[in-house]
Amino acid sequence: MLQLVLFNVFNGLIIGAFYVLMALGLAMILNLSNVINFAHGNFLALGGYIAFVLTPYIGFWGALLVSPLLTAVLGLLLERFLVRKLYGRDPVYSLLLTFGLAFIIQDVCRYIWGPNGLPVSVPPSLATPLSNELFFVTGYRLFMVAVVIVAVIALFLFLRYSRMGMRIRAGTLDLETVAALGINVRLLRSLNFAVGIFLAGLAGVLAGGQIGLNPNMGDDLLMPSFIAIIVGGVGSLTGTLVGGLLIGVAGALTTVFYPSASEAVIYIIMMLVLLIRPRGLMGEEGMLT
């Protein structure tokens, strides 16, 4: 029983790690640009597919580095030519735009790579279990968790200490003042968008190695990521981090006792949070509400 619980907690942490990568990117874009990026899950799929294409040439490690960057460049182009036009307009338009983009990207992926699952080959050094008792702890899964931890720490350091990061945080609180202080807000938003998409691309490569690729692989992650943001509190990235891990582990633990409720439980958590603490666990009252 203990092993089963451990197994599921570990699974939950891995799923939660994906939620966190997705949700952090979504939340950054939401906080600074007031845009809900429906296509976020499709950027995740794109990241995975780009890695699939690159792996034969530069290996898994190369793809892990290059693919998120290329995904971010694609995101940057879409931001520059489409999303940017809608800043400051009624948010319904940017929602519909990313909604349409999600359709298009998914269909293009299906057109190019086919509707069936494709594997991303993982280096053999990562594919073996570490021990017999803890059979579920393969090297690759530990590696994924490690990459996510490094990425999240790097993101928080970037936001906390770099000049750009501080501007992003300031812009989240009061974009007008930031603009009035002479900072190029358009560039800031583009960069912020690219960082968010980079995280999605990274999640895509990691997910590809774990569960394989298919055109709608991001769809199942999108909704939990929304919920991670709502539970954690809009405007607080730490909250999003906690929210993602919380619903990941809660969902996985529920699988032990009552498997068919594993998805329901994250919605129940969301409803409880909305009832008891509408601003979210770590959200501040008045942020974006």
Partner: peptide, 8 residues
Amino acid sequence: SFIGLLFV
């Protein structure tokens, strides 16, 4: 794709 394009 066409429906998505319509949205855009």
